[in-house]
Design a protein around this nucleic acid. Structure first.
Lengths: 151, 151
DNA sequence: AGAAAGTGTGTGCGCACGCACCTAACAAGG
DNA sequence: CCTTGTTAGGTGCGTGCGCACACACTTTCT
C-alpha cells in the first residue's frame, strides 16, 4: 500500500475511476434531467421507464421486472407508472396468467413522446459526456462498466 | 444515424457508456454506503465530506468550497457539517477575513474516524468495482471521466 | 461616509426515493 | 378442500436532498 499520496483517499489511482464516476453522476444527471424536462416535460425517470418498457417484449413489463431493469426501485417504479398512466403514456393491463401482477404497457402516445424526446437526450449525452472523450475511451468505459454490472 | 438498433435508446453504442454509468451508480452506491455504515456508522456522505476536508489546505474549507468539491450541494453540505459537528468529527471555526463565512475544519477525532473507515471503503470499491475490470481499463475510465469533469 | 450592489450562509419547504409492512393471489401438501 | 407458506404489488412513512428565500456581512460607487 501507500504507493501514492493519501492512500486512504479516493484520489488514489485505484479509486480514481470510482471517484470520477461519483462526480460525473452528480454533475451531469441534474443537467440532463433539466434539459429533458425543459424541452419535453419529461423527467429523467419517466424517460428511463418509458425506454425500458419500449424495448421490452410486447412493450410491457411487470413491476418486478421494471424495478429490476430500471434505475429506480420497484416501489418507486410503481408510483412512476401511476404518474405515467395519469399522463396517458402508459396503461396498466391485467396479467391473465397471474392475478397478482399487472403489466405496465407503453401506449402509442408514450412511444410518440419517447421518440420526440430522444434526440434531446442523446444530444445532451453527446454534448456533456461522450464528446469529452475519444471513441475508443467511450467503448472502453462502456465495456468496463458492463462487466461491473454482470459480476 | 440508425447505425444500430433502437437509435433513440441508451442501448446504442454511443450511449452505452452513459447508460452503464447510471446503472453502476444505482447498483453500487447503496451497497458501499451500507457496508460503510454497518462497519463504522459512517454514511457515504459523511465520508466524502470528511475526505474533502482532510485533503484541503489546513484541513478546512468554507461551505461554498465544500459544496463545490463534494458530491452533495452546498446547502446539503451545510447540514452535513451540522451533523458532523454534533458527532465531534468536525468543528466550525470563524473566518477572520470574512465575517459571513465560517470554515468547517476536521477534528482529530474526525481524522481518526476517517482513517479507520478508509480500508472498508477501499476494499468495497475494489471488490465491487475495480476488480471487475483490468487495470488498464480502470485507468482509461479514470482519465475519461476526469476529462468530462474538466470540460 | 452613506447607499447600493454583490456574495457567503443558514433554513423552510417541497419533492423524490426506498424500506417495511399489508393485502391479495398463487403454490404445495395434507 | 382447507391450511400453510410463498410471491407480486401497492402504500404509509421517514429521510436525504436541492431550491429559493432571508439575512448578515463585504465591496464598490458616488
Amino acid at each position: 500500500m501507500r504507493t501514492h499520496k493519501s492512500w486512504y483517499g479516493v484520489t488514489m489511482d485505484n479509486t480514481a475511476a470510482w471517484a470520477g464516476l461519483l462526480r460525473v453522476h452528480a454533475a451531469l444527471v441534474p443537467v440532463l434531467d433539466q434539459e429533458l424536462q425543459a424541452a419535453h416535460g419529461l423527467p429523467l425517470t419517466w424517460y428511463d421507464v418509458l425506454l425500458e418498457l419500449n424495448s421490452a417484449k410486447d412493450r410491457q413489463l411487470t413491476m418486478g421486472e421494471l424495478g429490476a431493469k430500471a434505475v429506480v426501485s420497484r416501489s418507486r417504479s410503481s408510483r412512476v407508472v401511476d404518474e405515467l398512466t395519469r399522463a396517458g403514456l402508459v396503461e396498466r393491463v391485467a396479467n391473465p396468467a397471474d392475478g397478482r401482477s399487472a403489466f405496465a404497457r407503453i401506449t402509442a402516445a408514450g412511444r410518440a413522446r419517447l421518440r420526440a424526446a430522444a434526440p434531446t437526450y442523446l444530444a445532451g449525452i453527446e454534448a456533456h459526456f461522450t464528446s469529452r472523450m475519444t471513441a475508443a475511451e467511450a467503448r472502453t468505459v462502456a465495456t468496463a462498466l458492463e462487466k461491473v454490472l454482470k459480476g
